[in-house]
């Protein structure tokens, strides 16, 4: 990458809070930039000095292995100092409010704060109150923009264009921030989005998103190019939203028989971690011919590097806190 490239602004906002606020151009530019980082991550020398001297803080109020380590690696590969802070080691359990915790961190002058929180709107609230860049790494049932971006990158590398592509998002849409961000992103990029789930796992008026809704898995998968499975939060779901996991697997779990209804050569995605035998059968999940699950993880690091890069372009040379 030349220095001239690095100066080109990509994002209008100083934060990444959701897909909702992004334009098609911004999304495409982020994906293009991420392609460069895919190449970098595959090289022997995986590091760039782009964020040298910058501080990135991972503030995670919900346990997460995948997303947190992906952001950590992304920050480190760009040369930033990365600090991880999880709820178990913070003073939130002592009754400190989210704002207080974040303000305390803010006083340590991080350049970029990556936040995951169980409540919708938490990242947006911090962005309003703090002076650093805020990246939403998942807020409640609202959005998880980097997941949708990495899914888009994965799809684009296999299918070139989103136009005319049919993507079936299957499972617990109601509680899923991944589904919301993906619906928004795929819709913006011109893909046809279908939702496949029992009505108890669909939000009310979800059709207002401009998606097609199916309750029968076979109907929903018919002719789909991409099948995107969502994780079922079993501890919360069973008995309340669905009667049992075995019934769920029978009607909405992805196995070879149901996948056969999709377009020949259809690809399967899952944001992880998977519940094998609940929403997805191991035979499908482990089939390298159809499953993109490991590729999604790889693209995750590249996308997050691209996001950190893009946000850092908005930072003043001396940092935002000056």
């Amino acid at each position: 990458m030349s220095p001239a490239d690095a100066a080109t602004p990509i994002l209008r906002s100083g934060h990444l809070l959701g897909i909702e606020g992004l334009s098609v151009g911004e999304i495409a530019a982020l994906l293009d930039l991420a392609e460069e980082y895919v190449a970098l991550c595959r090289a022997k020398e995986k590091k760039s000095p782009l964020l040298k001297g910058r501080t990135v803080v991972n503030l995670f109020f919900e346990p997460s292995t995948r997303t947190q380590s992906s952001f950590e690696l992304a920050g480190k590969r760009l040369g930033a100092d990365v600090m991880n802070m999880s709820v178990r080691t913070s003073s939130v359990i002592k009754g400190e409010t989210l704002i207080d915790t974040a303000s305390t961190l803010n006083a340590m002058r991080p350049d970029i704060l990556i936040v995951r929180h169980q409540d919708s709107g938490a990242a947006a609230m911090l962005a309003r109150k703090l002076s650093c860049c805020v990246v939403n790494a998942g807020d409640g049932a609202h959005e998880h923009p980097t997941q949708a971006l990495l899914d888009a990158l994965t799809i684009r590398r296999r299918r070139r264009s989103f136009e005319g592509l049919t993507v079936a998002i299957c499972g617990d849409v109601a509680h899923s921030r991944v589904a919301r961000s993906n619906m928004l992103l795929l819709g913006k990029m011109g893909a046809r989005v279908r939702l496949v789930a029992p009505t108890t796992l669909l939000p009310v008026q979800v059709d207002r998103f401009g998606v097609e809704v199916f309750h029968d898995m076979r109907e929903g998968l018919r002719g789909a190019d991409i099948v995107m499975m969502l994780r079922l939060q079993m501890e919360r779901m069973t008995g309340a939203f669905i009667p049992s996991t075995r019934e769920y697997f029978r009607y909405w779990g992805l196995d070879r028989e149901k996948l056969a209804y999709a377009k020949p050569g259809a690809l399967v995605m899952h944001p992880g971690p998977m519940n094998r035998g609940v929403e997805i059968d191991s035979a499908v999940a482990d089939d390298i011919e159809v499953s993109l699950i490991h590729e999604q993880v790889e693209m995750g690091v590249a996308i997050r590097m691209a996001v950190l890069d893009a946000l850092s372009r908005g930072l003043a040379a001396g940092g935002r806190n000056t």
């Binding site: 919708s120 409640g140 008026q205």
Partner: peptide
């Protein structure tokens, strides 16, 4: 309130 806007915000809603 339950409706399209609540769904977009991802907030728990009541009809």
């Amino acid at each position: 309130n339950e409706g399209e806007y609540a769904m977009r915000l991802g907030l728990p809603a009541v009809p």
